[in-house]
């Protein structure tokens, strides 16, 4: 629609911007590329000095070993369990924390109530304590409640960890939405609830997507808490699973990287699906028309 108005100057500009963006992203991706390549290298290349930058041969051995396809290795990594547990915990905690966070964020952004600021600050307090300090008291509590080894219990913790983030973000995004829009909806006969559903929530979709991505990845990568609460292999997620590849003295770099590659796949799919909602505020123009 505006293509006809684009000047040659603008086109050049956009090529420069696009290539510059690619350049930066590729530079940022280099360490990741190295990690991914390590998963496919032959053993002799991994510790070679000077390092071999571009692999001379590609092997899937590490993946075969992980799935127990190598008859010479007795041990077997519980990848399926890690995958299932990670997905269950990350997805469920994302859905719950984003839902609860959206509700609370809406309340903070739209309504004045007693202890507004105090409540908001309490949320911050809960984000100041790292897993290493939370894990032991939580472990005590969960042992009493019988929640150790439980995926639901773990998910519960992750929900709590992700909620403050979700609330802040949603509060910020709801505040971006012009009040007149919501008020217009009231005039059109919408109640609070349907104004929220029909007007505010769709407009805050980029915020929702952002919150969901970070909640998902935070749960996906969390290590300290799950390593204390999950007491057997069957209830672990990927990050403690990575420690399968550390021995007393050595680290199996290739195995660890291979598992990380496997671990990336669901995360990439989730991000690809979710980031679609990061769209320019199409709606702001819409109301004017």
């Amino acid at each position: 629609m505006i293509a006809s108005r684009v000047s040659p100057h603008r086109r050049l500009n956009s090529i420069i911007i696009n290539s510059f963006a690619w350049l930066i992203l590729i530079a940022l991706a280099l360490p990741a590329v190295w990690i991914i390549l390590t998963a496919f290298r032959s053993n002799s290349e991994i510790n070679a000095s000077p390092p071999v930058w571009i692999p001379r041969e590609i092997t899937f051995e590490a993946f075969g070993n992980m799935f127990g396809l190598n008859p010479n290795l007795q041990q077997r990594v519980a990848v399926e369990a890690y995958m299932f547990n990670s997905l269950f915990v990350a997805l469920s905690s994302t859905v719950v924390s984003v839902a609860a966070g959206t509700l609370a964020g809406y309340a903070f952004s739209r309504f004045k109530f007693r202890f507004h600021t105090a409540a908001f600050l309490m949320l911050m307090l809960s984000r100041t304590v790292p897993g290493v300090a939370l894990s032991l008291p939580l472990f005590l509590l969960f042992t009493r409640l019988g929640w150790t080894n439980s995926l639901v219990g773990l998910s519960f913790v992750y929900v709590a960890i992700n909620i403050p983030f979700a609330i802040w973000l949603m509060d910020g995004f709801f505040r971006q939405i012009p009040r007149d829009l919501t008020e217009a909806a009231y005039i059109d006969g919408c109640g609070y609830w349907s104004a929220f559903w029909r007007v505010d929530l769709p407009l805050a979709l980029p915020g929702l997507a952002t919150a969901a991505i970070f909640a998902f990845l935070a749960s996906w990568n969390e290590f300290q808490i799950v390593s204390v609460l999950a007491r057997n292999n069957a209830s672990k997620t990927f990050p403690p699973g990575l420690f399968t590849f550390t021995e007393q003295f050595t680290i199996d770099w290739r195995g660890m990287c291979a598992m990380s590659v496997l671990m990336m796949i669901p995360a990439i799919i989730f991000v690809i699906l979710t980031q679609r909602n990061l769209v320019r505020g199409l709606t702001f123009g819409a109301i004017k028309g």
Binding site: L136, F139, N232, N233, K236
Partner: peptide, 24 residues
Amino acid sequence: IVTLLDGFEIDKKLVQDYATGAVD
């Protein structure tokens, strides 16, 4: 086998379990 860990990780777990009486 409850779980397999490397030496330093097991030590951490044992300390926590012995401390909290969660040895199973």
